[in-house]
Simulated scan of single mutants.
Amino acid sequence: MERPGGILTTLYLASALVGIVLALAFRASFRDLAHIELRAAWAFVGAALLEGGLAFATSRGLIAPEIAGPTAKTLVLLLVGYGLWANAHLRGLWFVGLGLACNALVIFANKGHMPVSAEALYKVGMESFIPKLQQQYDAVHTLISESSRLWFLADVIPVRILGYTNVISLGDVYLMVGIALTVLEGALKAKRKAQATFDIDLRF
């Protein structure tokens, strides 16, 4: 679940860190990490800024949720979709695409809203968000009810890691796995490319 004014930045950064650790464990270097070939990076950055900005604006009452929600999700889908298409060579991003598809599916099935489990919120000590969700304080989230569709794809997974708490969806899990695998795969490809170039230089 997105907190006011932002996205799952902490977990996404943690996923990237896991990818970096795995890459180093497979003997990639920081130089290899710096040379990961990620095309159209602006699309992913733009999507994150757009969604975070609209969530912040909605939580401050600057934009109506019924306008910001569909706008954010449509534009994010377009931007990330383009980024995925441009980086089809990175198979780790396929998990990112799967996660995005799962989140989009449950949101569109619930008329632009991501249902959130009240039970999961209680488990991680975030019950104070329940009244806010009842008032639809941001562009997307609302409490799960009997009428919620595809609830198993909604925010129903409680997370408590090293003091960090949140409630996330299966799609978020796929996204985090995809981020870690993309960093690992990209670094290893950069390593192989650098080694191939070095071998060519030696022949000359």
Rank of each mutant, 00 (worst) to 15 (best):
E2C: 14
R3A: 11
G5V: 07
G6E: 07
I7Y: 15
I7S: 12
I7G: 12
L8D: 15
L8C: 13
T9A: 14
A14H: 00
V18G: 04
L22Y: 04
L22Q: 03
A25C: 05
R27C: 05
S29Q: 02
F30E: 04
R31T: 12
R31Q: 11
D32A: 05
L33F: 06
A34D: 04
L38T: 12
L38G: 06
R39E: 15
A41W: 11
F44A: 15
F44R: 08
V45P: 01
A47M: 07
E51G: 13
E51R: 13
G53Q: 03
G53L: 04
L54N: 07
A55V: 14
T58Y: 10
S59C: 11
R60V: 08
G61M: 09
A64D: 15
P65E: 10
E66Y: 09
I67N: 00
P70F: 07
P70K: 10
P70D: 07
T71S: 14
A72I: 04
K73Y: 14
V76W: 05
V76F: 09
L79K: 04
V80A: 12
V80N: 06
G81R: 13
Y82S: 02
L84I: 08
L84T: 11
A86F: 01
N87I: 08
A88C: 02
H89I: 05
L90A: 06
R91G: 11
R91W: 15
R91F: 14
G92M: 13
G92R: 12
L93E: 08
W94F: 13
G99S: 08
A101G: 03
C102W: 00
A104F: 06
V106F: 03
N110H: 04
H113D: 03
M114R: 08
A118M: 01
E119R: 13
A120Q: 05
Y122I: 00
K123Y: 00
K123A: 15
V124C: 03
M126W: 00
M126G: 00
E127F: 01
E127D: 14
E127M: 01
I130A: 04
I130H: 07
P131E: 07
K132R: 14
L133R: 08
L133Y: 06
Q134M: 11
Q134V: 01
D138V: 02
V140L: 13
V140R: 08
H141Y: 04
T142Q: 09
T142I: 05
L143G: 09
L143S: 08
I144W: 01
S145T: 15
S145C: 02
S147G: 06
S147E: 15
S148E: 08
S148Q: 05
L150K: 04
L150W: 11
W151F: 02
V156P: 07
I157R: 02
P158K: 12
R160H: 13
R160A: 13
I161G: 04
L162H: 09
G163P: 06
T165L: 00
I168K: 05
I168M: 10
I168N: 02
L170I: 14
L170R: 00
L170A: 14
Y174H: 03
G178L: 06
I179T: 11
I179P: 01
V183P: 09
V183D: 10
L184V: 05
E185S: 10
G186Q: 06
K189I: 00
K189H: 09
Q195E: 15
Q195C: 00
Q195M: 11
A196D: 10
A196C: 02
A196W: 01
F198C: 01
F198D: 10
I200M: 04
I200F: 08
I200L: 13
D201M: 12
R203F: 10
R203D: 06
F204H: 12
F204D: 10
